[in-house]
Computed example of a mutant assay.
Amino acid sequence: MKNIKGQNSARKFLENSVKTGRIANSYLFTGPSGVGKLFSAKRFLMAILCKEDMDIAGTCAVCSRVEKKIHPDILWVTPEKNKNIKIDEIRALKDRLSLKPFESVINAAIIEDAHMLRRESSNALLKILEEPPEGTIFILITNKKETLLPTIISRCIEVKFHPLPIDDAKNIIIHEAGVFVASEMAEFLAHFAEGSPGRAIEILKSEVLSRRGEILGMVEQMAPDEKYFYAGWKHESKDDIIEDVEIFIMYLRDIAIAKEGMIKYVVDKSIVDSLWYKMFERYSIDKIYMIIERLVALKKAVEGNINPKLAAQILPRELSGC
């Protein structure tokens, strides 16, 4: 499991579990998205199932099947984006786990995005966790632990994952993006994704970076006339608003750092010569951080249940600091 980067506490705990043979029935991997929870779950199972030394596990045929999600004794529940996990999926999981493993000594079930369990599917899973089939390991993966049933949480051993140090995230982005990424861009992405290399690679493959100029241009158009801060925001979809707010938060942090005279710590140094910087230069450091706090709160609200169109009306006013 030495390939697990930037998650020393989680890696050491899992390694010790394998070395001592004290494997629990149920684990809950928690933490931000894109920081290695799924990667670590695979490595954990490789270390359990592989006949090679734990430090070199990952190269044999068994490990290859685990990596590709085609091992016959590992069952995967992977919901589509924003789709709930239905009770029928949990019932099918229970039926399969009642059978003996095909080629291993254990069966394993990996439930990705476990926070997408509906109430009835959560209750069905809880019954299985209360009386797990012999020789079965469950790994639930989530970045929203607070939405899970407390009774499910209490049945699992929690393994906490955290944002990676920027240098670790940067190196993973460079080596795992699948395309050439310059060191400066990798560092920018590591900061922008807040230490989540998985999220950074998603951003790299999306249109977020190409939208930066458009987004900043929209704000710069507001600068000459503050009445535009009371107009609605152009983007109204949930994902777009979240990404726009993330861009604003990062640039406002850069502006605050630049105003403090610490230019070398600014992630995107081009911001210093932009109209965007001049627009907020008149604000105090305290006011900039107040705007950042309000944007963070708005992002959390959009990730929750707030109507994205309402958020689009609020966003320009939050940027104004009024």
Rank of each mutant, 00 (worst) to 15 (best):
Ala223Gln: 04
Lys287Ala: 09
Val208Met: 06
Gly304Trp: 02
Tyr265Ser: 14
Phe280Asn: 12
Pro224Asn: 05
Ala297Ile: 05
Ser270Trp: 02
Ala256Ser: 15
Pro224Ser: 08
Glu194Asn: 10
Ala190Pro: 13
Asp240Val: 10
Glu236Cys: 10
Lys205Met: 00
Glu207Phe: 04
Phe229Gly: 09
Ile288Leu: 14
Gln221Tyr: 01
Ile263His: 10
Leu216Glu: 00
Gly304Arg: 12
Val267His: 07
Asp268Leu: 01
Tyr277Thr: 08
Asp225Cys: 05
Ser206Gln: 02
Met222Ser: 03
Ile255Pro: 10
Ile215Arg: 00
Val267Gln: 08
Trp233Gln: 08
Met262Tyr: 15
Ile285Cys: 04
Glu220Met: 00
Val267Ile: 14
Lys278Phe: 13
Met279Asp: 01
Met290Phe: 10
Asp254Trp: 09
Gly304Ile: 03
Glu243Pro: 05
Ile291Gln: 04
Phe192Lys: 08
Ile242Trp: 02
Asp268Ile: 01
Ile242Arg: 07
Glu214Leu: 01
Glu293Ser: 13
Lys287Phe: 08
Ile292Met: 10
Asn305Thr: 13
Arg294Asp: 13
Pro224Glu: 09
Arg282His: 14
Asp254Tyr: 09
Ile257Arg: 13
Tyr230Thr: 14
Ser196Gly: 06
Tyr265Leu: 14
Ala223Trp: 05
Arg211Tyr: 02
Val267Cys: 07
Leu252Asn: 09
Val219Trp: 01
Glu194Pro: 04
Asp273Asn: 14
Val219Asn: 00
Asp244Val: 14
Glu207Pro: 00
Glu226Ile: 02
Ile292Phe: 07
Arg211Ser: 08
Lys269Val: 11
Met222Glu: 06
Glu226Cys: 01
Val208Thr: 09
Gly195Leu: 11
Ser237Pro: 02
Ala301Gly: 11
Trp233Asn: 07
Glu194Ser: 11
Leu204Trp: 06
Gly198Cys: 00
Asn305Phe: 04
Ser284Leu: 13
Asp268His: 05
Tyr230Phe: 15
Ile215Met: 02
Ala258Trp: 13
Met290Val: 01
Glu243Gly: 00
Met290Cys: 07
His191Ser: 14
Gly213Tyr: 02
Tyr289Ile: 12
Asp240Asn: 10
Ile247Phe: 06
Val272Lys: 07
Arg199Glu: 06
Leu295His: 06
Phe192Asn: 09
Ala231Gly: 08
Leu252Gln: 09
Asp273Thr: 13
Leu295Val: 10
Lys278Asp: 15
Ile203Glu: 07
Ser284Glu: 15
Lys234Glu: 14
Met290Ala: 11
Ile291Val: 15
Pro197Gln: 03
Ala190Ser: 15
Ala190Gln: 11
Ile271Trp: 04
Met250Cys: 07
Ile203Arg: 02
Ser270Gly: 08
Met218Ala: 01
Lys278Thr: 12
Met262Leu: 15
Gly195Phe: 11
Arg199Met: 09
Ser196Asp: 03
Gly232Trp: 06
Leu209Ser: 06
Val266Lys: 09
Ile247Arg: 01
Tyr230Cys: 11
Arg212His: 02
Glu260Lys: 15
Phe229Pro: 09
Lys234Arg: 11
Leu295Tyr: 06
Gln221Gly: 01
Lys234Gly: 03
Ile263Cys: 03
Glu236Ala: 07
Val266Thr: 07
Glu243His: 02
Val219His: 00
Glu281His: 12
Leu295Pro: 07
Asp239Leu: 05
Ser274Tyr: 10
Ala256His: 13
Pro197Cys: 04
Tyr228Asp: 03
Glu281Val: 12
Asp240His: 07
Ser284Asp: 15
Arg212Tyr: 02
Lys269Thr: 11
